[in-house]
């Protein structure tokens, strides 16, 4: 990359880099009186050199997110049968014995006719009947999110304590109770991203 001259003019390579980052305004924040700014006004060096390089081990220890394509899923496996006793012991107190909800969210509640649980099609189906509650079965677009969220944040009184096999088991139990996988289907790094969630296509990026 280029350098900043004493007169504050950018040399061509840095200017090109600045434009690539979304416009030269990023490097040259406006007048000093303006709010905000990038903190990278003229005279900014190419690198400050603060901090240290992250090691692969450090990254692996903290990088726990799961992408929709399954990237990040660990080894291990679980079924509804292996998840059921864990659910009863650690989850049912807040989410209900059958996932019907309690002090915490409802987890189960999928009926194919009511997907999605809102909109014109839903209104027509519902008639004068009671509303169908939002649940994992009718409003969660990705099965991978279940693994990510349960592993990082559940159970809420002891988050981050479940082993991979236990999380896979809980995910399998929830998906089976929602009728989205078979009672004997095993969930693992290969099968979980392939589960088709009914709400997958109802979400659209913000337009208003």
């Amino acid at each position: 990359m280029g350098r900043v001259t004493p007169r504050g003019m950018l040399t061509a390579p840095l200017l090109a880099a600045a434009l690539a980052l979304g416009g030269a305004g990023i490097l040259f924040a406006g007048p000093a009186a303006a709010q905000g700014g990038s903190g990278a006004e003229q005279g900014t060096p190419e690198s400050f050199g603060f901090g240290r390089a992250a090691t692969a081990e450090e990254i692996a220890a903290w990088d726990i997110d799961i992408m929709p394509d399954g990237t990040g899923l660990p080894e291990g496996e679980g079924t509804a049968a292996s998840g059921a006793p864990i659910y009863a012991r650690q989850c049912a107190v807040c989410h209900g014995q059958s996932g019907e909800g309690g002090v915490a969210d409802r987890l189960v509640g999928y009926t194919p006719e009511t997907t999605p649980p809102f909109g014109p099609r839903y209104e027509e189906w519902r008639g004068d009947g009671p509303d169908v509650p939002y649940s994992i079965g009718n409003y969660w677009p990705y099965a991978t999110t279940l693994f990510d969220y349960i592993r990082r944040a559940m159970p809420s009184n002891a988050p981050g304590t479940l082993e991979a096999d236990q999380v896979y088991g809980l995910v399998a139990w929830i998906l089976a109770e929602n009728g989205l996988i078979g009672a004997d289907d095993a969930m693992n790094a290969t099968t979980l991203p392939a589960v088709e969630m009914p709400a997958r296509d109802i979400f659209v990026p913000q337009e208003r």
């Binding site: 999605p116 809102f118 709400a199």
Partner: peptide
Amino acid sequence: PLADGTARQFSFV
């Protein structure tokens, strides 16, 4: 969730 049956995602602003 919207009246038209879709759901807005990433409604940041």
